[in-house]
């Protein structure tokens, strides 16, 4: 066990966990930030996507010891009032079916649009290809990313 000082959603947190504890479980079990989802646990599906220093990253295989000084943003901290352009677009397009993958989809899309604010459909599909949606909401995810790009 070791103590880690983390910067998450603009606030500092201190946790006492084993060095190999993935960020995902620190968020969920220790900090009560359950918006970041556990699905495959093996970096295959993107459900656990967060931002580490502004870049989309999969938290399920990311040991806490490697990221202690980074700025972490989770879905809870993407915007103050849930009105990030990507969140707005997700609502307008009415993307979610079961909704379980959507926090990860939104975090992936938000980081992608920061890098590429004016993407083509192909670029969107490439950027979002790593995020599985078992409900098959892909058409609307693509549409929402496109719409969000007009709001950014």
């Amino acid at each position: 066990m070791a103590t880690y000082n983390l910067k998450i959603n603009g606030k500092s947190h201190q946790v006492d966990v084993a060095a190999d504890t993935p960020l995902l479980w620190v968020l969920r079990d220790h900090l009560g930030l359950v918006g970041t989802k556990y699905a495959c646990g093996t970096a295959q599906c993107g459900a656990c996507t967060v931002h580490v220093n502004g870049t989309a990253a999969r938290s399920c295989m990311m040991p806490i010891s490697g990221i202690a000084s980074s700025e972490i943003t989770t879905i809870e901290g993407l915007s103050e009032n849930g009105d990030h352009p990507v969140q707005q677009a997700w609502d307008e397009v009415d993307v979610a079916q079961c909704g379980y993958c959507q926090a990860g989809q939104i975090m992936t899309a938000a980081a992608f649009l920061k890098r590429n604010p004016d993407p083509t459909d192909e670029e969107i599909a490439s950027a979002m290809h790593g995020n599985i949606c078992r409900c098959g909401a892909y058409h609307r995810i693509r549409e929402a990313v496109k719409l969000a790009s007009t709001k950014i």
């Binding site: 930030l33 809870e76 993407l78 997700w90 609502d91 009415d94 979610a96």
Partner: peptide, 11 residues
């Protein structure tokens, strides 16, 4: 729109 959208989108 889905009545739970806001909750889903904010985790």
């Amino acid at each position: 729109r889905n009545v739970e959208n806001q909750k889903i989108h904010t985790g």
